[in-house]
Design a protein around this nucleic acid. Structure first.
Lengths: 141, 141
DNA sequence: TTATTATTAGTAATAATTACTAATAAGGAA
DNA sequence: TTCCTTATTAGTAATTATTACTAATAATAA
């Protein structure tokens, strides 16, 4: 599990560097995502943060998630489900995604490569795929 | 590139087995996806199929894509973009996704593992991630 | 403390996808 | 082939995740 305090410290530094304000909304949203391993969607983040900050709006959560992504503190977990899921753990790792309930679990790549069948206990594997993301040559000009 | 005729043949067999009707809409939609390597979204499939079948509706395209997926003839390419992209090539392979324009290119896994930097010429890599999809233990009961 | 302006709350708008209904046509039976 | 049954379709309305807009608020620097 990642260290939430370290994460908030990083938020402070990156906001300062990017000339962005360190708002309690940003702190709470990041704290929430970094504190769980469930890879929550925007609505879930909203519901959780609302408990400690009842005035926060859904719009702010969406905007904040985008800001945190721009700052390189969280990223979107690719999935074919309806809702976008977020992860604050930036160390290289993979995900097991249940296509039925949408649960997202971390998978440790080295263990998985060594013994895909025994390395974890998440469920029945239907498909494994590798995504490489970047900027294509056309877009680089 | 996959053989479109073989793909249509498979559609016939699977429809028969699944008690689903072999409609011209299903044939045209599958033909379109199988005939390109651009991993089109629903709207693009709609626009293309409309050229040869002007009466087709967008709703039918969406339903047909789901049917073809259920039949195991196409699958959704995971991406964090707004629109879902489809692929009819079921042989194990990976994708390079441009986070700027949304272009999706095929990447051949063995080449990529051997020499990630030289194996292809799609663009600048920002992130590589592996997704494992399946049914989690909870959902299996 | 004050001023500047990025950020927020609240709400409206957008866009992808799904649901609904009457009409149509695929495919089996006669 | 022709007729029937009912899955499927076209057209449109509804839904749902996400984004945009605006006036009010509050984080930072002077």
């Amino acid at each position: 599990m990642i260290n939430v305090d370290d994460k908030i410290q990083e938020l402070k530094e990156r906001c300062a560097k990017a000339n962005m304000r360190l708002t309690p909304q940003r702190i709470e949203v990041l704290k929430m995502i970094a504190g769980v391993n469930t890879h929550p969607d925007a609505e879930t983040v909203y519901a959780e943060v609302k408990k400690v900050m009842p005035s926060i709006s859904l719009d702010t959560v969406y905007r904040t998630l985008t800001s945190l992504e721009d700052l390189g503190l969280v990223f979107k977990v690719d999935n074919e489900l309806a809702k976008t899921r977020y992860d604050a753990d930036l160390t290289p790792h993979c995900h097991f995604i249940c296509v039925k309930c949408g649960a997202v679990h971390d998978v440790h790549i080295n263990d998985y490569i060594k013994a895909p069948d025994e390395s974890y206990d998440y469920g029945e594997v239907l498909q494994t795929n590798l995504q490489v993301k970047g900027i294509c040559n056309k877009c680089r000009g």
